[in-house]
Measured scan of single mutants.
Amino acid sequence: EDDHHMEFCRVCKDGGELLCCDTCPSSYHIHCLNPPLPEIPNGEWLCPRCTCP
């Protein structure tokens, strides 16, 4: 699979289990988001950068 997502968290710059945005290459740990997510959501997810007006 050709995955163009970042291999590190945009916030802390560390790797591991990352949540990938469905519209851009950004990846995040769920605990690095503000507010943090309790678990990885099902379905499409947009990062804070893509949901800002």
Rank of each mutant, 00 (worst) to 15 (best):
D2L: 15
G16Y: 01
C9P: 01
H29V: 00
R49H: 13
H31R: 11
N34M: 08
E1I: 06
L46V: 14
E39P: 08
P25V: 07
P41Y: 04
S27H: 10
P41F: 11
T51V: 11
L19M: 13
D3F: 15
N34H: 06
F8L: 08
L19D: 05
P25G: 09
L37D: 05
F8Y: 10
L33V: 10
P38M: 10
L33H: 02
E17I: 07
P35R: 04
R10F: 14
E44R: 12
T23C: 10
S26V: 08
L37F: 06
C20R: 15
S27V: 11
G15A: 08
C52T: 15
E39D: 05
N42E: 13
W45A: 03
E17Y: 02
L46I: 12
C24V: 02
H4R: 11
D3C: 15
G15Q: 08
D3L: 15
L33K: 03
E39W: 05
E39Y: 07
L33M: 05
V11K: 12
L33I: 10
E7T: 02
M6G: 11
C12Q: 00
N34V: 10
N42Q: 12
P48W: 05
V11I: 10
S26E: 13
R49D: 15
F8V: 12
C32R: 01
T23V: 10
W45S: 04
D2K: 15
E1G: 05
L33D: 03
C50W: 00
C12Y: 03
V11H: 13
V11T: 12
P48Y: 03
P48E: 11
L18M: 13
C47A: 01
E17C: 04
S27I: 04
N42C: 10
C24K: 02
M6N: 11
C9G: 03
I30H: 09
I30K: 11
R10T: 13
F8W: 11
E7L: 09
E7R: 07
P38E: 09
I30V: 12
C12L: 00
I30M: 13
K13E: 15
L37C: 07
P41W: 04
P41A: 08
G43T: 13
E1A: 03
P35K: 07
H29L: 00
I40W: 11
N34C: 08
P36H: 04
H4E: 09
C32N: 00
E17R: 09
P36T: 07
H5W: 13
P35D: 06
